[in-house]
């Protein structure tokens, strides 16, 4: 049984992510305790709201370095993914920097509305166990900021421009969509994550 913890990043989706894991039969305690995070087999970093707020919350709890030094699989979700990058344009926020690149505001144009809100189709860029079974699936997105497609991008989606929907760099993974609200595709992502070795 994986020993997964949810990092208390203050996002209002903590309970929903926890419930999504419970539906898969996985107990996922929420913690801000550095020792428990270091000892976990899998670490999930949820997030709703703003990058600056999430970073401040990690800093308050002394977790910035703890998360940067983890060796087990880590998955950031939505804002939890955005703060894995070096920088977010949202309130000009320095982030954790465990994945190269930065997060920028999505550009609205005729027919392309921001926030990007709803179900969008995923396209596979690179084969990876985390992305298994997700090519062409629809996932639920709600965000105004996104990371560009780079060599870390496993899955992308299009909203006026292509952006990174699922990324990996070493043991750090990030999903811009919400697995807890993405029906079958969301459950699949969480299962794939839990299947990653330590």
């Amino acid at each position: 049984m994986p020993n997964l913890v949810l990092v208390d990043s203050g996002g209002s989706n903590l309970g929903s992510v926890q419930a999504a894991l419970e539906r898969l039969g996985v107990d996922a305690p929420v913690t801000g305790d550095a020792e428990r995070i270091r000892a976990a087999s899998h670490v999930l970093l949820p997030g709703v709201g703003a990058a600056a707020v999430a970073m401040a919350r990690l800093r308050e709890q002394g977790l910035v370095e703890v998360i940067r030094e983890l060796r087990q699989p880590v998955l950031g979700v939505c804002v939890g993914m955005q703060i894995l990058f070096e920088h977010s344009e949202e309130s000009d926020t320095p982030c954790l920097g465990v994945i190269p690149g930065s997060v920028r505001r999505l550009q609205a144009s005729p027919g392309v509305r921001v926030p990007h809100m709803g179900w969008n189709q995923l396209q596979q860029r690179i084969e990876h166990p985390l992305a298994q079974g997700l090519h062409d699936a629809h996932a639920y997105f709600v965000h105004s900021f996104a990371a560009a497609v780079t060599e870390s991008t496993l899955l992308s989606a299009d909203h006026g421009q292509s952006f990174a929907a699922l990324v990996v760099r070493g043991n750090y993974h990030g999903a811009q969509f919400h697995p807890e609200r993405s029906a079958n595709a969301g459950a699949r992502l969480l299962e794939n994550f839990l299947g990653l070795g330590g």
Partner: peptide, 11 residues
Amino acid sequence: VEKVARSIDIP
């Protein structure tokens, strides 16, 4: 609201 949030996997 809590019950719904825990039970469904759509927004």
